[in-house]
Design a protein around this nucleic acid. Structure first.
Lengths: 197, 197
DNA sequence: AATTTTTTGTACTTGCTGGTACATTTTGTC
DNA sequence: GACAAAATGTACCAGCAAGTACAAAAAATT
């Protein structure tokens, strides 16, 4: 489909425009024409690079956002070895969600897109999996460093963390407040934030 | 708008048909014609009882579902005084979500409708509030009965519980599995499920 | 029974959105 | 520079879904 550098650039512009549009206004109300306008392209390109149309574009957006979200967090996640690092990470997560508010890509992604196309659902599932793995690795590293109770089940804790984040974002979407996220995250992270004796 | 019993009945049929349709197939793909067909009415009635159209209907559905969800849970919630009752409630929540799966009205509601109309958002917010209040009352009752650690902050725990449920449903929607819900709920309920000394 | 109000049926309009057709330009290749 | 392939511009189509117009039937009111 894409054979030249120019083409690749155009394709990318389209995906990024779509992602931005969706982040700002939501999936349902974002139209292909909006995306074309924003990316400075026409329907022609649209269907040239995404022959299966809207569905295919949404999938590409989903993948892009999944990458973005993960790349954003990765540097923090890979250094979770001390209680202090955890505390910092907690703050980053809450703050990111709070400021991005309704535009939280992860929220939009999983809540919105995932439900309607099996392919996008698979992407969402994979993102959750990776996210959870990264958190689990962090827990294990902290345990290995002797900074956390070794009796903590790292994978269960990680599962709870991603669930709580997802829920917090969800509540944020309907209430506009990140309080729930903060409270629940604190509670779940409790065992690892508090010193163990 | 509605002056006679017959009219009220029709109006109700419309809302219920819409709710069912949305539960089964989702908000985005549900059309007014679908609702008319299912309720055995015509556009004429539709706009007679909901002059502001689709938006107004969705709001009515949101309110209906909010009532339903809460009425379902209320009997359980009001009797949360023993650790055993909590364990039972936990099972009911998980099981309900698991079997209802993608059709979970709460999930659909808050994730789907809430984001697009301020009015619906208000309803969602109120539902969360009531739900959280009920859980908090349960925690306090359990503490009063001497079955739970009095040092637990009831409101924070309640906030975490609703967050976790919301998140669990959200994850369920994209992964199809209720495992996350179960794990996170267990973890958050930990302090109240385990005997304290 | 007359009349006014409410309820309902039918047919239509309008606007938008995903998607297509096809011609034209640009780009890479020999 | 010729030729093929890729990229792009313009114009269009088909369908669908929200919403409207208006008249007819059914109830309520007197």
């Amino acid at each position: 489909m894409t054979k030249t550098a120019k083409g690749a650039a155009t394709r990318q512009r389209i995906v990024e425009a779509a992602a931005a549009e969706i982040r700002e206004r939501g999936t349902v109300v974002t139209t292909l024409d909006d995306v074309c306008r924003r990316s400075g392209t026409g329907k022609s390109q649209m269907f040239h690079y995404f022959p299966r149309g809207r569905e295919q574009l949404l999938l590409a957006v989903t993948e892009l956002e999944a990458r973005n979200v993960f790349d954003d967090q990765e540097p923090y996640l890979s250094q979770l070895t001390s209680r202090q690092a955890w505390r910092q990470w907690r703050d980053v997560v809450v703050e990111t969600c709070r400021t991005q508010g309704l535009h939280c890509p992860l929220g939009v992604l999983i809540a919105d897109v995932g439900r309607y196309s099996p392919a996008a659902q698979a992407v969402a599932r994979q993102l959750i999996r990776r996210w959870q793995d990264a958190v689990r690795a962090g827990v294990e590293a902290t345990q290995a460093a002797g900074e956390a109770d070794p009796r903590i089940d790292a994978d269960r804790l990680a599962a709870a963390v991603v669930t709580v984040i997802q829920g917090g974002v969800s509540v944020l979407l309907s209430t506009g407040s990140a309080d729930h996220l903060e409270i629940a995250l604190d509670m779940v992270l409790g065992p690892i934030l508090r010193p163990f004796s």
